[in-house]
Structure formats: C-alpha cells, structure tokens
Amino acid sequence: MSDGPEENPAEVESSGELAAAAEEHDPTGVDLARQIAASVSAIKRPAAKPRKRRPPRPTGVQSSGSHPDDRDPMLVGDALDRLVGEKGWNTQVNIHLLLGNWPRLVGAVNAQHSQPESFADGILTVRTSSTAWATQLRLFAPQLVARLNKDLGDGSVTRINVKGPDAPSWKHGRRSVRGRGPRDTYG
C-alpha cells in the first residue's frame, strides 16, 4: 500500500482543473477587459448623424453697446437721408424739394403763370403761360439763381432757361401755307 493517504481519482481530476484554472487566472484583469471589448465591438451600433455646420461667426466688434451704430434701428426719414447721402443724390433731391415749393421761391403771382419743367446739368428750365411772363421771369432769373445756390450750395444751378408757352401747330390739312403762321404771343 502506499505511504500517504489514498486519493480519490475524482478528487485528483478536480484538483487538476483548479490548478489549471489558477495558472490561467490573470490577477490584473487584462484578459477579461479584452474579452469585454471584443464582445462590445461585435455589437452593431447605428451610424452617427453628421453634425450640422454652424455659419462662420462674423469678425470684429459684435456688441453695439450704449452708443448708436449702424445695426441699431432708425427712423425711416433718417434711413432715407442716409441712403440719399450714400448715393450722392443730395443736390437732385434738394432741387426737387425746392422746386416743389415754387410759389415760395418766385412769389404767388409769378408761380400762377410759371412752373419748373426740368433740371439737368445745372440748368433749370421753366415754362411760362405767355411771353410777357417769360420776359418778367427772365429779368428775375439772376436773383433766383443766387437764391437757389444759397439754399443748395454754390454752383448747383448755373442758369435758368425760361421758355414761353408751346405754340399750336398751324400746319393742318393738305393745303397749308408756308411760314410761321399767325404772329401772336407764342414766345
């Protein structure tokens, strides 16, 4: 018989498994972490949605602060004044405003018999109701030019062209006579 205690063959077999398990066991847990990572990566996840791009931020000062700047709301009149100034329309707008007040410029009686027709290249064209009123306004033209230049800025109006009334055409029908027609007060 043997000198030591008798060993059961089933116990020997289980003790061999324990010894093998003890040798396979990693006390740091690296193998276990690898197994978990492999099982997680094997799981299919839905694809990530692409991120929406934000518009680029404007550079420069972004806050208006307590002082007014270009981004502050403004009155319509102020916005129109700014637009007229940026486009260089100041002289044209001012001339049309003054010509809208024609009776104030030339007087009520002269305004009843004349009205401004056009303004181009510093020349103001005025139409009158008769040749007598055209003569009267031609005599008054230098003072009117000085007054307009004073209100609008020097050199805005260089000359006033005064015209009489439009004459009717005397060329009616097949048989018309050559010449100017009746000589009346048609300027």
Rank of each mutant, 00 (worst) to 15 (best):
S118F: 04
D78A: 15
A108H: 09
R138D: 06
A146D: 15
N149G: 09
R159Y: 10
D81G: 05
A111P: 02
A141C: 12
G122D: 12
L144P: 15
S156R: 02
V157I: 14
E86W: 01
S118R: 08
A132I: 11
R127T: 08
A79S: 13
W102R: 06
V93P: 00
N161H: 09
N110H: 15
L99W: 04
T158S: 11
L152G: 02
I95S: 01
H113T: 08
R104I: 00
M74W: 10
N110W: 12
T125A: 11
G122R: 05
L99G: 08
R82A: 07
I123W: 03
K87T: 02
F119P: 05
L137Y: 03
A120H: 12
M74K: 11
F140D: 11
L97R: 01
G107S: 11
P73W: 14
T158G: 12
L75Q: 09
L144I: 13
S156W: 04
I160W: 05
L139G: 05
L99H: 02
L144Q: 13
I160F: 02
T135G: 15
V93F: 00
T91K: 00
T158W: 10
W89P: 01
Q92H: 02
A108G: 11
Q143I: 10
A120S: 10
S156L: 02
R147C: 09
L124G: 06
L137E: 06
T131F: 02
A108W: 10
Q136V: 09
V109D: 11
A120P: 03
N110Y: 12
T135C: 01
S114Y: 07
S129A: 14
A132Q: 12
A132L: 15
N101Y: 09
L98G: 01
A79F: 14
Q143T: 13
L80F: 10
S130E: 06
N149D: 14
L152V: 06
L152E: 01
W133E: 04
L83F: 08
N149F: 08
